[in-house]
Simulated assay, not measured.
Amino acid sequence: MDGKSLNITEDLIGKLKEIIPAAFTEDKLNIDQLKQLLGEDITSNTEPYILNWAGKQEAYKVLQTPTFKTLKPDFENSVNWDSAENILIEGENLETLKVIQKSYYGKVKLILIDPPYNTGSDSFIYPDKFSETKEEYLKRLGEKDDEGYMIKEGFFRANKKENGQFHSNWLSMLLPRLFLARNLLKDDGAIVVHIDEHEQANLTLLLNEVFGENNLVGNIIWDKGNPKGDASGIAYQHESILVYAKNRELFLNKTQLVRKKRNAERILKKSK
Rank of each mutant, 00 (worst) to 15 (best):
Pro116His: 05
Ser121Gln: 13
Ser123Val: 05
Gln101Gly: 02
Pro48Ser: 02
Ile125Pro: 06
Pro73Gly: 08
Thr96Tyr: 05
Ile125Trp: 06
Thr255Asp: 10
Leu51His: 04
Lys224Ser: 05
Leu268Met: 12
Val108Arg: 02
Thr204Asp: 08
Glu239Phe: 01
Leu268Glu: 14
Ala22Gly: 13
Glu199Cys: 14
Thr204Ala: 15
Glu265Val: 14
Ala235Met: 08
Val99Glu: 10
Lys246Gly: 01
Ala181Glu: 04
Gly233Leu: 01
Ala54Asn: 13
Glu213Gly: 03
Phe179Leu: 13
Ile89Thr: 01
Asp27Pro: 01
Phe156Lys: 11
Asn80Thr: 01
Lys224Ala: 10
Val243Asn: 01
Lys260Pro: 00
Met1Asp: 13
Gln200Lys: 14
Leu216Lys: 11
Lys224Ile: 15
Leu138Val: 01
Thr70Cys: 08
Ile221Pro: 03
Leu203His: 04
Phe166Ser: 04
Leu38Gln: 10
Gly55Trp: 03
Leu180Met: 14
Ile111Ser: 07
Glu197Trp: 15
Trp53Phe: 15
Ser5Phe: 07
Asn86Leu: 02
Ile267Tyr: 10
Gly189Cys: 10
Leu252Phe: 01
Asn208Leu: 02
His198Tyr: 14
Gly154Ile: 03
Asn253Trp: 00
Leu16Asn: 03
Glu147Phe: 11
Asn247Trp: 06
Ala59Ile: 07
Asn215Tyr: 01
Thr119Tyr: 07
Lys107Ala: 02
Thr46Trp: 00
Ala54Leu: 09
Ile125Cys: 10
Glu85Cys: 04
Arg157Glu: 06
Thr96Leu: 14
Arg262Asn: 12
Leu12Trp: 09
Lys129Ala: 10
Val99Leu: 07
Gly218Val: 07
Ala181Phe: 02
Asn263Gly: 10
Gly3Cys: 08
Phe155Glu: 08
Ala264Asn: 10
Ile113Tyr: 01
Ala245Arg: 06
Lys161Gly: 03
Val193Pro: 02
Ser131Val: 03
Leu242Arg: 06
Phe156Cys: 01
Ile19Lys: 15
His167Lys: 15
Lys270Asp: 07
Gly212Ala: 09
Gln33Asn: 06
Glu249Met: 07
Pro66Glu: 05
Ser83Val: 13
Lys139Thr: 12
Glu239Lys: 09
Leu94Ile: 02
Arg259Pro: 00
Leu205Ser: 13
Ile221Arg: 11
Leu51Thr: 10
Gly14Arg: 12
Thr46Met: 07
Ile111Asp: 04
Ile241Thr: 05
Arg259Tyr: 12
Leu206Arg: 06
Trp81Tyr: 15
Asn208Arg: 03
Gly120Ile: 08
Leu185Glu: 03
Ser83Ile: 13
Leu184Phe: 06
Gly120Pro: 06
Leu257His: 03
Val79Tyr: 14
Thr70Lys: 15
Gly39His: 03
Leu63Val: 05
Tyr149His: 14
Gly212Tyr: 06
Ala54Asp: 14
Gly148Lys: 04
Met1Ser: 13
Asp223Met: 10
Ser78Lys: 06
Lys144Glu: 11
